[in-house]
C-alpha cells in the first residue's frame, strides 16, 4: 500500500536530501528552512508529550486494574503528576493558597525544588557508589584488557587528586602522578577517541544513506 509505505519513505528521502543540501547554500532561505524545521519539531514534540503522558499513565492504570504485584504504588505517579499539573496551571503556578501573585516562590517551584531536585541529585550521586562496584566487577574479570582498563583508571584518578602530589614528593617528583595522568589523557586516550569518532563517522554516513534510500526501513515497522 503506497500511502502506508511509499509516502513515508518519500518524505524521508525528500526531507533528508533537503536537510543535507541546505547546508551548502548561502541563501537566507536555507537558514529560514532550518529555523522552521527546528520550530516544527518543537511543536510536534509538544503533541508527543501528550502521547507519552497518556502512555505512561495508561501503563499505571493497567497495573492498578490488573492488580499486578505492587500495583498500589502506581497511585503515587498520579499523585505526583496531578499535584504538579494542578499547581502549575492554577493561578499560574502560585496555587490556590496564595491570594494574589507575588514575586515569591510559586508552589510549582516548590515541587520542583523540594521533590524533583533532591531526587535527581541523589540518584545522580549514587553513581559514586556504582563506579566503585563497576570497577570491582572489572577487577574480577581478570584478563589483560580489564587490567589495562583498571590500571589506566587508577593512574588517571590518582593523578587528579591532590594527595598524588604528596605521594610524589616522597621520592622527589611532586608532579609525577599528575604528569602521568596528563600523558594518558593526551596520547592513548586521544588516539582511541579519534579512532572511535572516525569509525563512527563512516558508520553514521552509511546508516543515513541506507535510510534515505529506503534500504533500511525497519524503523517504519516494515521488515525486509
Amino acid at each position: 500500500m503506497w500511502y502506508k509505505r511509499t509516502i513515508p519513505l518519500v518524505i524521508v528521502f525528500v526531507i533528508g536530501v533537503l536537510a543535507f543540501a541546505h547546508n551548502y547554500v548561502p541563501y537566507p532561505e536555507a537558514d529560514d528552512f532550518r529555523e522552521h524545521m527546528t520550530k516544527w519539531f518543537m511543536i510536534i514534540g509538544g503533541f508527543g508529550l501528550f502521547l507519552g503522558a497518556y502512555s505512561l499513565l495508561h501503563m499505571h492504570v493497567s497495573r492498578i486494574r490488573r492488580m499486578q504485584p505492587g500495583w498500589a504504588y502506581s497511585a503515587f505517579v498520579f499523585i505526583g503528576a496531578a499535584g504538579m499539573i494542578i499547581v502549575g496551571l492554577w493561578n499560574d503556578g502560585y496555587g490556590p493558597l496564595e491570594s494574589a501573585p507575588s514575586t515569591a516562590k510559586t508552589w510549582f517551584d516548590w515541587g520542583f525544588d523540594y521533590v524533583q531536585i533532591p531526587c535527581s541529585a541523589t540518584i545522580f550521586s549514587i553513581l559514586a557508589f556504582f563506579m566503585a562496584s563497576a570497577a570491582f566487577r572489572t577487577f574480577r574479570a581478570r584478563n589483560v584488557n580489564a587490567a589495562l582498563l583498571l590500571v589506566a583508571a587508577l593512574l588517571v584518578m590518582f593523578g587528579r587528586v591532590p594527595a598524588s602530589e604528596s605521594v610524589g614528593a616522597w621520592f622527589g617528583q611532586q608532579g609525577f602522578f599528575p604528569k602521568i595522568a596528563d600523558l594518558i589523557m593526551e596520547f592513548p586516550n586521544l588516539a582511541a577517541t579519534r579512532g572511535i569518532l572516525l569509525g563512527m563517522s563512516l558508520g553514521a554516513i552509511s546508516q543515513s544513506l541506507r535510510i534515505l534510500f529506503g534500504i533500511e526501513r525497519s524503523y517504519m515497522g516494515v521488515g525486509d
Binding site: L56, V77, G80, A82, G83, M84
Partner: peptide, 9 residues
C-alpha cells in the same frame, strides 16, 4: 509523577 507533571507544564 512529579517529573511528568513538571515536564507537561
Amino acid at each position: 509523577g512529579v517529573a511528568l507533571g513538571y515536564g507537561a507544564i
